[in-house]
């Protein structure tokens, strides 16, 4: 536990020592600010809708594909390349502590990034346009969980290669695929279901089953279904935490496998 926090603290301080971080912060905050003001104009001053749009709109998902990949590529792949991974993995902390520590740092950074929207909300509240605070906070909480999921996917990709660029690319593609699962699944189902079934009832049952499998991986829908409404549904929280734990577990195993592969 202490080891996790020590690793997370070092990761964060290392992050804020790097110019990369500040450039990312500058660019993302600048573009988000511009987008936010355009949302305000589009919704004719609907504060809650603009805040929600800037945390859940297409721009958010675009950032979510790039930023976790860029952050997580340095977590393992870059350390492996520079040799510091050897230092970390021979220090008296467990592999799990290293993985979770790094995960917390990267997710914490993204949480900080998305908290800029909270600053907009506070400012607007003072300026006389009070937002729906529960929806804003719920959405922000949801963005953290989505960030966590994508960081976990990115970390797994990061352990598979010691080329940071390849790790980032793998991570972006996997995140994109993850988001695209519902769309891909529906087109695949349209082809497969008629081949596998004969009667309409069977067809409906199969579509239902597959639909529930796909739904259990559909991050977009889980995100928008509750957090955006300002509801902290434990089922949705558990959905994200389960997938995060799954990918972190695979990451830890993958690091363990390095000890055998050499």
């Amino acid at each position: 536990m202490i080891g996790t926090l020590v690793v997370a603290r070092r990761e964060l301080s290392g992050l804020f020592m790097a110019p990369f971080t500040w450039i990312v912060l500058l660019v993302v905050l600048f573009i988000n600010g511009l987008l936010f003001s355009s949302f305000i104009y589009q919704t004719q001053g609907n504060v809650t809708a603009s805040l929600s749009e800037s945390m859940t709109g297409p721009s958010f998902w675009l950032w979510m594909i790039f930023l976790p990949a860029l952050l997580s590529m340095r977590l393992v792949a870059e350390e492996s390349r520079s040799g510091t991974l050897e230092y970390l993995l021979t220090a008296p902390v467990s592999d799990a502590a290293v993985v979770v520590g790094k995960f917390l740092a990267a997710t914490g950074f993204l949480a900080l990034l998305w908290s800029s929207t909270l600053i907009y909300a506070v400012t607007l509240d003072y300026a006389g346009g009070p937002p729906d605070w529960s929806a804003v906070i719920g959405t922000w909480f949801g963005t953290i969980l989505v960030s966590g999921l994508f960081v976990a996917i990115g970390m797994l990709a990061s352990t598979l290669t010691s080329t940071p660029l390849l790790a980032a690319f793998l991570s972006m593609v996997s995140c994109l695929m993850w988001l695209a699962i519902p769309f891909l699944a529906s087109s695949v189902m349209a082809y497969l279901v008629p081949l596998l079934t004969s009667t309409a009832a069977e067809q409906a049952a199969l579509v239902g089953r597959m639909g529930s499998v796909v739904a259990s991986m559909d991050a977009l829908r889980h995100f928008s279904r509750s957090f955006q409404m300002g509801v902290l549904d434990t089922a949705e929280i558990i959905f994200f935490l389960t997938w995060i734990s799954f990918f972190l577990f695979l990451t830890a195993r993958s690091i363990e496998a390095r000890r055998w592969r050499g």
């Binding site: 202490i2 080891g3 020590v6 603290r9 070092r10 301080s13 290392g14 020592m17 790097a18 520079s82 040799g83 510091t84 991974l85 050897e86 230092y87 021979t90 220090a91 008296p92 902390v93």
Partner: peptide, 25 residues
């Protein structure tokens, strides 16, 4: 001490030492 002398380049010497100290509780 591995051959590559892995140290975090973005840290100061004292910070690196403190990190090691914290890792060793």
């Amino acid at each position: 001490l591995p051959e590559s002398v892995p140290l975090y380049p973005e840290l100061r010497v004292e910070e690196m030492m403190r990190f090691q100290g914290r890792l060793h509780r």
